[in-house]
Design a protein around this nucleic acid. Structure first.
Lengths: 216, 216
DNA sequence: GTCTATAGTCAGATAGAC
DNA sequence: GTCTATCTGACTATAGAC
């Protein structure tokens, strides 16, 4: 792996562990056993490191989330979608721990973020409409956007919500499953009578995956 | 107003406007036209200012949220509860913009926060049970806690969610009403057939209050 | 209680040798 | 590409006069 890539990977790990604000460029360099000067050879400054991480984040999201194929099972597609989404939240949750602060310091990143979130909203709306077309949920047109926002907010802020409620900040895989359960809770309210039992089975599955802890 | 109180009020205002990280003790002092030395006469450091603000926040929450009286209209009580909650979120939203960071820097505050959130969760659960007792909602016992978490998360992170999606960070009263609508969306899914029309009326009311903008 | 002046600290970033 | 050495700037906090 190139030094540049190592800087990115180390930064992601340290940011997630200790928070973006607590980790300085010196910390990143010393964790990699390189000099601060070397780090600055590869990146103009800390903002540029974060921009690069954000690029990975949005790239991952765009490659993972293909639109549903009409002939596929809508519910099964949803499960894959959720898993990828929360995998992403797991890898980049530091970003949402400090979202306001990170965006306030970098106008360029903020613009990219807003653009990206707009397109993400449309994707989520498309998923909801596909679920409706597949008879998985029933939802009025004028509630689609509102539910999409709720889903997006839940996925974004679930990890900060969990982390804030425990003393040692470390996140576990189980916490992510709890978040998936919250998404399913949101969807459950819109399920058709045919899909309700399937969604309940899904919830049971994730409850088992999450059950190593008694949190939440 | 005492200098000490003015420091608190000015801090809240500046934190909400520009973010807690961006505002230094020097900013606070110079905005009040007092010296940094004077500020440090009244507060040991910035952490202590934030602790004091958190004390106001939790005090407000505890005084505003009386338990329901059994003979009162449960739905009407809920509306008052929501208004107070979002008033609080309006006044202290800077806290949730940077929650992870603020708590990571102050162990004492973090412990207080966790304790407070625990008791808040119980309050929300009590409200849900009261709504069920008042035939406003139907909900299974094992979903009460999960829904309470969703409500709490929504109220906490609605403002950061909104702020992150616009370039000028200023929040408007309408944004708060959009948040109330999200809470009502969550509850609507659990409404009884008797209460559904009332909740829909409530949603219409808040939609009008929020309609000066086309956001969300 | 309030001021001025300043010490201490540290993150962010650069210059120039190798 | 990488290092050492160093600088700048900003923020926190204190000392001592008024």
């Amino acid at each position: 792996m190139s030094t540049k890539d190592k800087i990115i990977q180390t930064s992601i790990r340290l940011f997630n562990q200790h928070g973006e604000r607590a980790i300085t460029t010196n910390h990143i360099a010393s964790h990699m056993c390189i000099s601060p000067g070397n780090l600055y050879y590869h990146f103009k400054n800390k903002e540029h490191i974060i921009r690069q991480i954000f690029a990975l984040y949005s790239e991952h999201l765009h490659t993972q989330f293909k639109p549903f194929q009409p002939n596929e099972d809508a519910l099964q597609n949803l499960v894959g979608y959720l898993d990828s989404l929360f995998e992403l939240m797991w890898r980049f949750h530091f970003f949402y721990d400090n979202l306001g602060d990170i965006l306030a310091r970098d106008e360029v990143l903020k613009k990219d973020y807003i653009t990206f979130q707009s397109s993400l909203l449309e994707q989520v709306e498309a998923v909801l409409l596909a679920l409706r077309a597949g008879n998985v949920i029933t939802i009025a047109d004028d509630e689609v956007t509102e539910l999409a926002h709720m889903l997006k907010m839940t996925v974004s802020f679930w990890t900060p919500y969990v982390k804030a409620r425990r003393l040692s900040g470390e996140l576990a895989q189980q916490d992510i499953y709890q978040g998936i359960l919250k998404v399913l809770l949101l969807l459950k309210a819109y399920c058709t009578s045919q899909s309700l039992s399937q969604v309940n089975e899904l919830r049971t599955k994730y409850q088992q995956l999450a059950s190593d802890r008694d949190t939440v």
